[in-house]
Nucleic acid binder design. Structure first.
Lengths: 125, 125
DNA sequence: ACGCAATGCGTGGCAGACTAAGCATTGTTG
DNA sequence: CAACAATGCTTAGTCTGCCACGCATTGCGT
């Protein structure tokens, strides 16, 4: 389906930003490295730009990339979603442990969950 | 442009995350709504997934979307400086482990953090 | 031995992101 | 008026993200 309503919403957002910056589609095209014809299609809601184009546009507008992503509906994640992420997710997302340490911790954790019987654990290659 | 080095880097990151989660490509495919054949190609660095796929994968892994974007090289700015979820808190609030098991996990975790030499055993690399 | 399910990977093809070139309109200048 | 430039838009085409399907291998159960 060509006409996506999310694409239309982002198109409006892009057009408003461009008009606020007081530049034409071609000027924005040169500033961002995207073709002007594509910008026209995006503003009219025909297409949803990829993440790379969003990044380029954000740089051209000098606004944070995360704002672009949020406006394009790509980052609709709740900022403060769940309170208890779970041990597995917490370990995996940790920034202080390296991959081996994470694997070891997960292995121990899973062994606890599986009961006293030692299960054939995964080959951590 | 078949061999894109950024695609390869993200492929490695994706594969490591999948192995940490201990799931197969097809399981990840069902959890994220992406086809398993495509996941295989992404892990091997053949393609660079779009932002929508990144979002779906982040949800499947229960890690923030911004982490996915950063790892895929799409967000080279604004680290957003989020506080780590906290493995300790996750372990303490877990409902499936008993006190002994929690203590053991915490002890292993703290050993990893405090040890100047993080790995006295299990060479693995 | 025989299935049979699960895993990773290859192939063909469709849909969509993206571009180059051109059209139509509106100035703005001589 | 002619001539030029700038704007937004359309069209035709290329490239690639992505999937449905199938193949080869491994492992488990009978």
């Amino acid at each position: 389906m060509g006409t996506d309503e999310a694409a239309q919403a982002f198109g409006d957002f892009l057009q408003s930003q461009r008009r606020l910056a007081n530049i034409s589609q071609r000027q924005l095209a040169r500033a961002s490295g995207v073709s002007d014809s594509y910008l026209s299609q995006v503003e009219r809601g025909l297409y949803r730009p990829s993440a790379e184009v969003l990044k380029a546009l954000a740089h051209a507008f000098e606004i944070p990339v995360s704002t672009m992503f949020t406006q394009s509906g790509l980052m609709d994640e709740a900022p403060e979603a769940e309170a208890s992420p779970g041990i597995e997710a917490a370990i995996r997302h940790d920034t202080q442990l390296n991959a081996e340490q994470k694997a070891a911790l997960l292995s121990v954790y899973r062994a606890f969950l599986n009961g006293p019987r030692g299960e054939p654990h995964t080959p951590l290659d």
